[in-house]
Write a protein that binds this DNA or RNA. Sequence first.
DNA 1: GGTATATCGATAGAGTTATATCGATATACT
DNA 2: AGTATATCGATATAACTCTATCGATATACC
Lengths: 219, 219
Amino acid sequence: MIQNYNSKKLYERLPIYVHFLNSIQESNISSTTISKSLNLGEVQVRKDLALVSGKGRPKIGYSTKNLFKAIKKYMGMNHASKAIIVGFGKLGKALYDYAGFSELGIDIVQAFDISNTTDFVKDIKELDSYCLENEILFGILTVPSTEAQATAEKLIRCGIVGIWNFTSVRLNVPSHVVIQNENLAASLSVLVKSTLDKKVGNDYEKSNETNDSYTSKKH
Amino acid sequence: MIQNYNSKKLYERLPIYVHFLNSIQESNISSTTISKSLNLGEVQVRKDLALVSGKGRPKIGYSTKNLFKAIKKYMGMNHASKAIIVGFGKLGKALYDYAGFSELGIDIVQAFDISNTTDFVKDIKELDSYCLENEILFGILTVPSTEAQATAEKLIRCGIVGIWNFTSVRLNVPSHVVIQNENLAASLSVLVKSTLDKKVGNDYEKSNETNDSYTSKKH
DNA sequence: GGTATATCGATAGAGTTATATCGATATACT
DNA sequence: AGTATATCGATATAACTCTATCGATATACC
């Protein structure tokens, strides 16, 4: 493959553009404006947009509406993707109620747990029939770590091919299944370490701008 | 800088090693074993360990205890880092109760909200005095998007230099502050798109292994 | 003690992602 | 109509990250 621009990082930015485009009133928008609003590199935004969208016009930019549609189409956000949550603890509840998914074409249609079943939380025994009947492809895994691998396998047997894994377990799955790890503890550690790095740097030399970290951009 | 291995990806993996080392009984452990247990590349693990730790021994591996200590030291996990949560909605609650942080030397010492104050949730008006008295460096931002920027600025005025940002807003902060964005909606989108990519690939050509995605490893 | 080997550490290279630069062009403005 | 310029698209380069390979070595085993 000569050049593969279907990068993970790109896939992270496109939803950010969608959210932004959804929030503005202007009928046209330039990559410059987008980059400034979102603290992203100007060239990067242009490259992203060039990949997924039609032409932009000098002095004008892109049609907001067309751009919006183009990104959603590219990301497969046109037809809604149905996901279920397995493990209805605090984190599962929070994600179930999280408002930001529908804008990106994702519906969390059902929650499962081993107990605490209510009108909208099914017992995990019903997982199998529910997933097959409703053709669920995506599962959000928020069970205790001890149950992670077994539950993942259960999901896969039910036809799920994409798992958003909030447990600290590194799942072992067949190659047709995609795992997206969301290791919150590790993520917070990254912040702490990055911050300490920068802080120490600043303490040594009072100078700024040295070894400017990845997480905060300087444009 | 000739070669900077203080990479963000490295910082994500080190806590995973810590968690793993914490869970095993063996007094020695090899990079091979670690890599297999965690579904990571063998060479990658060795390189990571070589960077932070003392020598390993052929046929034996590393001393679990020493390795554990070395990583924690490298990551600054020896002295506990104190963090606060601002915004005590469902997500804030979930993070407040999340068990995985302490193992990595991070204590969430206090939660704040604009209302719903209880014995362990302080009113956001007390943010200032609390942070300065307790020398808080890290803030977890789980407020509504409309409040994100203003709240971030408030945190920064209180001396906070690292912000874990769960809002969909791309914060604008001075250069001495580190932002770690945790855009859940974007993250789930990545999973959906990656999965669809692979699925389509498999539907075209019945072959496997083509364009094997980044999220599931093949070792 | 000698031999086989698991594991290490280092180097080189491949793949991925971001940035810098610059000419082209459609638009706005005089 | 002519000129200035914001914005685009493309190419080249730099930075970052991961993987393959291989010789060195300490250990286990005969």
